[in-house]
Structures are given as structure tokens and as C-alpha cells.
């Protein structure tokens, strides 16, 4: 447990929901960006926000972050209305935009100190900046100009900047974009950590594999409407037709065995052979059969994750 993250969330949440948005609509000129989005995010949970490009995720996050006014609908952040109690919402929430803009000629340390001042920390901001430097593992870059940081380092800096005032609601727009696998795992751990100490974390992302590992719940939006929501642990239990990829020590042995048992399959590739199966039980049966036939099966795994399958099913009919 990170000591910095721990001290951030001392107060216990009054209500279970950090973010509530009901029937949110927003139009830009003639474009309907949001046509009725319902969205909630609970304290202590990471909530994923997924949807195709242009679905309205960024627009929704801008409304939650008090930058855009919704045309219609009710929004509450930590119990406050972003329209009428803007200050209270800002004190309670942190926002990380998808594109992290930087000031020229400002060092990492100065940038974080300035963020502290902007959030009214006053004399406490230098100390807070040091804590955040540790949290972001950017101590070595503390006196380097922000604009020379790599994309991933900037992303990390933008992320810890949003924590400067200890927000209880965290809104992140595609935080994983541009991160290397290691930083991705790290981000995941950090977000889980923040949730475990009571924050409501909202993450929009296109990387479903990431969400599958860090989110508790996922809300799907498509063309400005909420089209569904799932708890990740429910998704893991659910099943349906899926493509599984098989690999064996001897490929021709495997193909021959599949043909013998009348399993339709794709042509073998270096990655393996793909077979569509109806359920987990069918997969178990297939493996047992192959082993019985003497095929040396190395691996058998679903090609698409359950989240991906749900995503495609919910947002699929795009034409």
C-alpha cells in the first residue's frame, strides 16, 4: 500500500455513488454528442467507460469535470451539482485529459507545485509536490523541463497532478494510451489502490484487456447513449459462442484430430488453429478428446475476452 495514496482519502463516503449522471444530453451545433447517457460510479470501485470512437466518452467526462454544461440531465459528483456547485465539485474531483498539454520551460517539480497552488494548497504545495514525484517515480526528472518528458512520463505526471488535492472522484480519459506494458501494469495497480482506499475511479479506455483486469464494472456507450453495463466478475461467468485458439507440439497431428472429430477450424497459422466453440464445457470436452487421441496440446485459450465479446455484441450494429 502506498503511503501517499493512503492519506488521500480519509473521509468516508456519504453515499455509495461518487458519480451519478442521469439522462445527460449534449449537442454541439448539429451534432448530438450525448443523447441520453446514464452513468454511475461507486466509491471504492474502478468503473470503465467504453465505446467506439465518437461515442461521447470524452464529452461525458468533460461534463463530469465541470468544463461543459449538459443540455439536459442530472449530474452529481460526490453529491454536488457541477453546474451550481462548481467549486465543491472541483475540490472533490480530479480530471486527466486524454491529451496532456505541457508548458514550455517549466520543470516537473515546478509544475506539480503550481498545481498545488492552483488547488489552493498554499504553503503545503512544495511538500505535496515531493510526494507526488515519488508516487510518479519521476524524482530523477524533477528538475527537467516538462516538455522533454516522454509521452508515458507525461501521462504519469498528468495523472499524479490530478491527485494533488486528494480528490475522492477521479476521472481519467484514456490514461493507458501510449504507456508501455510495464507502466500499464503500474497504472492499473495505482488505480486499484486508489479505489481500495475509497475513491470512485472512472476510466475511459479502448484497451479492453486492461479494463478486464482493473475495472469492477464497465459501462458501454454507443453514439451518445448508454447501451449496457456489466460487472467484470459476472462477465467471467457468462459464456457464449467464442473463438478458441489451439496450439500443439505437432500441428498436423492437431489438424488431423480436429478433422476426424468434425470440428470446423481455420487454416493453421504460426499462432495456432482457431476453432469456434459454444461454451466453456465444449472447450473442456475438446481438450479431453484431443489428449485422448494422443495430440500433444500446448495451449487452448479463448481468442477474444468476454469483455470484448460483450463490447462487440452491444456496439456491433454499426454498419
Amino acid at each position: 500500500m502506498n503511503p501517499v495514496a493512503e492519506e488521500v482519502f480519509m473521509t468516508s463516503p456519504g453515499s455509495a455513488d461518487g458519480v451519478v449522471a442521469i439522462g445527460v444530453k449534449r449537442q454541439f451545433d448539429s451534432v448530438f454528442a450525448l443523447r441520453g447517457v446514464d452513468f454511475t460510479a461507486r466509491y471504492g470501485e474502478v468503473t470503465g467507460l467504453v465505446g467506439p470512437n465518437g461515442a461521447g466518452k470524452t464529452t461525458l467526462l468533460l461534463i463530469l469535470a465541470t468544463l461543459l454544461l449538459p443540455d439536459e440531465g442530472t449530474v452529481r459528483i460526490a453529491g454536488h451539482d457541477p453546474v451550481t456547485e462548481t467549486g465543491a465539485v472541483r475540490a472533490m474531483s480530479g480530471w486527466v485529459p486524454d491529451a496532456f498539454g505541457v508548458y514550455d520551460n517549466l520543470t516537473t517539480r515546478e509544475y506539480l507545485r503550481f498545481a498545488g497552488l492552483a488547488y489552493g494548497l498554499g504553503k503545503r504545495s512544495p511538500a505535496r509536490a515531493e510526494e507526488l514525484l515519488v508516487l510518479s517515480r519521476l524524482q530523477d526528472f524533477a528538475d527537467r523541463p516538462v516538455h522533454v518528458l516522454s509521452r508515458g512520463q507525461k501521462q504519469r505526471l498528468g495523472f499524479v497532478r490530478s491527485l494533488v488535492h486528494g480528490p475522492r472522484v477521479l476521472l481519467l480519459d484514456e490514461p493507458a494510451a501510449g504507456l508501455d506494458p510495464y507502466s500499464r501494469v503500474e497504472l492499473r495497480d495505482l488505480l486499484r489502490q486508489l479505489a481500495s482506499v475509497g475513491a470512485a475511479v472512472v476510466v475511459s479506455s479502448h484497451v479492453l484487456a486492461d479494463l478486464e483486469q482493473m475495472a469492477d464494472r464497465v459501462v458501454f456507450v454507443d453514439r451518445g447513449v448508454t447501451v449496457g453495463e456489466r460487472r467484470i466478475d459476472d462477465l467471467a461467468r457468462a459464456s457464449g459462442p467464442r473463438v478458441w485458439r489451439l496450439r500443439a507440439l505437432n500441428e498436423s497431428e492437431l489438424v488431423a484430430a480436429l478433422d476426424r472429430n468434425h470440428y470446423p477450424h481455420t487454416a493453421p497459422t504460426p499462432g495456432g488453429v482457431d476453432v469456434e466453440l459454444l461454451s466453456d464445457e465444449a472447450a473442456a470436452g475438446l481438450i479431453a478428446g484431443l489428449v485422448r487421441d494422443g495430440v500433444h496440446v500446448v495451449s487452448c485459450a479463448p481468442l477474444t475476452t468476454s469483455l470484448e465479446a460483450t463490447y462487440l455484441a452491444l456496439t456491433g450494429d454499426q454498419g
Binding site: 468533460l62 469535470a65 465541470t66 468544463l67 467549486g87 472541483r90 475540490a91 474531483s93 480530471w95 485529459p97 491529451a99 496532456f100 498539454g101 505541457v102 508548458y103 498545481a115 492552483a118 488547488y119 489552493g120 498528468g158 497532478r161 488535492h165
Partner: peptide, 16 residues
């Protein structure tokens, strides 16, 4: 210019 560089929004969501 700040808006084009993406630094304005971050400034506006603070207590400023």
C-alpha cells in the same frame, strides 16, 4: 494558444 496546447482545460478545472 493555451487551449491549442491543451493546458487551458487543466487550469480551468482547478480552484482558480
Amino acid at each position: 494558444g493555451d487551449r491549442e496546447r491543451g493546458t487551458l482545460g487543466v487550469l480551468q478545472v482547478t480552484r482558480l
